[in-house]
Design a protein around this nucleic acid. Structure first.
Length: 514
RNA sequence: GGUCCGUUCGUCUAACGGUUAGGACGCCAGGUUUUCAUCCUGGUAAUAGGGGUUCGAUUCCCCUACGGACUACCA
């Protein structure tokens, strides 16, 4: 009976998840994936997704990083319901602005004997580690063994502690980890993870600069913001037992945990880093980032010409799969299909080729109209004006030949510019003494046409070449040389149809006279 | 070093004890496109190793190996 009731409450409770990056630089695609899985989970369960900025480390703050994160999520179509920049019922969503509320929680723990003041200097901490290492201690750390040899409120007299605090001596607040207990972390992806407290250390909860550490801030905020599921990277798994213990210390219900596997570098081992992108030539960030200090520029998926939906689809499939053979998913389809228990346990090597494949897939299903708009934007960047109707025709001809947005220009520039040079290899291969004569005939044939509609025109052109006894390959390739300048591009009839009579004949004559 | 997590084709993965171990990317070959790309067809290729449990293990357990994360007054 109790269990049924408890389960019911659980079902009725609104799902609330958060993405909580720290603004220390651009968001890496692993971070985007974490945000995506949180988003999908929230939407799938009819819950809320919030964005919280964890900026408790003032030293690592990078200007522009927060805006970058917000813009990235926006580009990806990962919309949040509450958070920085849009507000919500639990404002503020930036931890630096919540600074005032953390101390009382740390103090409460001290009053209950679950935490303590520590006055050790960095040098003293270093000495302690040194000393323990000398003694052959396997894990030299501030813990249930070493804390009684340090300068903290557990060993100092109450008077001493009081006067140090009144004097304004720098101090931190450390959690007191029990000596001999097992902490169980129930993870949605990994099952039960058990850690003995003797392996944990008395982590700092509150820093001497008056800011909480991640460990304190994330527990307090997740509780206050009523977070039900903490979905985060695997790098947090080792500190999850501490977090579970803190929930227990505060007598709060702990959220469900799910620790996501990492994104690994395409070659070799280890987690994907910015360096891998530079080295292997693919973006590691959603948007281009220019470092405010070093001025160094890192490429982004958006600027490289990826479509956001394709990028998201690719990322979603790295470490999760629906259990079917379907691979192309819209965001809504991802939401419908998503479930946390189909998330992989192990890390995934990132595959830049697959990213391109996804983008190509998305291009081929885009409407002519959508492609034409993308092409139009490219042309504006090149200073080329063109009639939209013409762009539609061109889009239809080239969209299946395009992988990235810049390919639109690569595949279509010859529609807007006469070829200035001719591919020598192709020219040598097809040019014959009679070629100019043949071209003259082709020109007059084109001249006579009443319509250049590509479907009908193509067959009549071929018919004409065939009946005239010309070599089909030679004529077609020569036309290609005249119109495009080299051996690539869509079918000749389609090109002529877009170019029109006048321009086609102009280009043919230009080749003839070259 | 310690703690924790992990391990199916080169890569992403399916197979919740019984399959000729399936799909996708890549690669290779053929076809279509009288160009190039696309596209189509086919091919290549995997259960890390060793022990158990079981009539039967990719699947459950143990050990080994290998890989990864963490090990700050960073998140």
């Amino acid at each position: 009976m109790f269990f049924i009731f408890a389960a019911l409450i659980n079902v009725m409770k609104e799902v609330r998840v958060r993405f909580a990056p720290s603004p220390t630089g651009p968001l890496h695609i692993g971070g985007v994936r974490t945000a995506l899985y949180n988003y999908l989970f929230a939407r799938k369960n009819g819950g809320k997704f919030l964005l919280r900025i964890e900026d408790t480390d003032q030293n690592r703050y990078v200007p522009g990083a927060e805006d970058y994160i917000i813009e990235s999520l926006k580009w990806c179509g990962i919309n949040f319901d509450e958070g920085v920049s849009i507000g919500g019922p639990h404002e503020p969503y930036r931890q630096s602005e919540r600074k005032h509320l953390y101390f009382e929680y740390a103090e409460k723990l001290i009053n209950e004997g679950k935490a303590y003041y520590a006055f050790d200097t960095p040098e003293e901490l270093e000495e302690m580690r040194e000393r323990l290492t000398q003694k052959g201690v396997a894990t030299p750390q501030y813990d249930y063994l070493s804390r009684y040899e340090m300068k903290n409120s557990l060993v100092l007299s109450p008077e001493d502690v009081k006067s140090r605090l009144e004097r304004g001596d720098p101090y931190v607040i450390r959690v007191m980890i029990p000596a001999d207990r097992e902490i169980k972390v129930d993870d949605l992806i990994r099952g039960e993870v058990v850690v003995h407290t003797s392996k944990l250390d008395d982590k700092v909860l509150f820093k001497s600069d008056g800011m909480p550490t991640y460990h304190l801030a994330n527990i307090v905020d997740d509780h206050l913001m009523e977070i039900t599921h903490v979905i985060r990277g695997e790098e947090w798994l080792p500190s999850a037992p501490l977090h579970v213990l803190l929930y227990e210390y505060f007598e709060w219900d702990a959220p469900q945990f799910a620790h996501l596997p990492l994104l690994l570098k395409p070659d070799g081992n280890g987690k994907l880093s910015k360096r891998d992108g530079d080295r292997l030539g693919f973006p590691v960030f959603p948007l281009q980032w220019s470092d405010p200090k070093s001025k160094e520029i890192s490429s982004g998926y958006r600027e490289s010409g990826y479509l956001p939906d394709a990028f998201i689809n690719m990322l979603a499939m790295l470490g999760w799969n629906p259990g079917t053979e379907k691979e192309v998913f819209s965001m809504q389809e991802l939401i419908d299909a998503f479930s946390i228990d189909r998330v992989q346990k192990h890390g995934s090597k990132f595959d830049p080729e697959k990213a391109k494949w996804y983008n190509h897939q998305y291009f081929s299903v885009l409407s002519d109209n959508e492609v034409a708009h993308l092409l139009e934007k490219q042309l504006i960047g090149k200073g080329v004006n063109a009639d939209f109707g013409k762009l539609l025709e061109i889009s239809r001809l080239i969209k299946e030949r395009v992988t990235l947005i810049p390919d639109l220009w690569e595949q279509s520039y010859f529609f807007f510019k006469q070829p200035l040079t001719y591919d020598e290899k192709l020219k040598n291969k097809i040019w014959r003494p009679e070629t100019p004569e043949v071209l003259r005939h082709i020109c007059s044939f084109i001249e006579e046409q009443t319509s250049l509609q590509s479907d009908t025109f193509e067959s009549s052109l071929k018919e004409y070449i065939h009946q005239s006894g010309f070599n089909m390959g030679q004529v077609m390739n020569t036309l290609r040389l005249a119109l495009v300048g080299s051996a690539f591009g869509p079918g000749i009839a389609g090109i002529i149809s877009v170019l029109g009579k006048e321009e086609t004949i102009l280009r043919i004559n230009r080749l003839k006279n070259s």
